[in-house]
Amino acid sequence: MNTTMLKTVNLTKIFRTDEVETTALHNVSFQIQTGEFVAIMGPSGCGKSTLLNIIGLLDNPSGGDYYFLGQEVSKFTEKMRANLRKKNIGFVFQNFNLIDELNVYENVELPLIYLGMSSSERKKRVEATLEQMQIMHRRKHFPLQLSGGQQQRVAVARAVVANPHLILADEPTGNLDSAHGEEVMNLLAQLNQNGTTIIMVTHSQHDAEFSQRIIRLFDGQIVNENIMNVKPGISTQNAL
């Protein structure tokens, strides 16, 4: 239980255009244990999403080391990252990023197809996940026919269907009203209780309180790490 899921050492990310050089991350070092629920917070432009992209193997750092499940991955090619990503990481985005042309069932099924799973196994897993997310009755609907909360539940279902070790959530409640936001946070907390590691970028102090630890970023550097006292999975409506 108490193994290291990932570790960064002096992680740096610099974006360069012809005239401007922006340091998005500067010597960021931290580690995350398996089973943790960590929130990353900070003002807009502090580098939260950049960090999440690197952690999620969507992007490489400009400098520093990144160990994912004990493996140094900072120099991986896109293909190697894709391979590692699809087996280990699920993503939840603020704007859901469901594929409009695929229905609920097909969207959730997609990661399993890329994992090369057999059709009967996929059916079993997708249906179980849809049941778990209480969205089974909407499986034939297309994303645009669903409410925001329902769409995000589908996105969470897609993120967890392959049983990833890690779920990365980028402002998962940003586009939802408070009731739907609450639903999604409860889902994430529940998943974490069942053993999934979760890293979540958020602006919301309320959402952050679902986590066990908050990493605060400012201008690309970690300024503070808090251990939360509130137990995950407990609704704290009055926290705000």
Binding site: G56, L58, E78, K79, A82, N83, R85, K86, K87, F91, N97, L98, I99, D100, E101, L110, P111, Y114, L115, R158
Partner: peptide, 14 residues
């Protein structure tokens, strides 16, 4: 582009 991006996130190669 959104579909492409998402499929890549989910593990599709080029």
């Amino acid at each position: 582009s959104k579909e492409v991006g998402m499929r890549k996130v989910l593990g599709a190669d080029r």
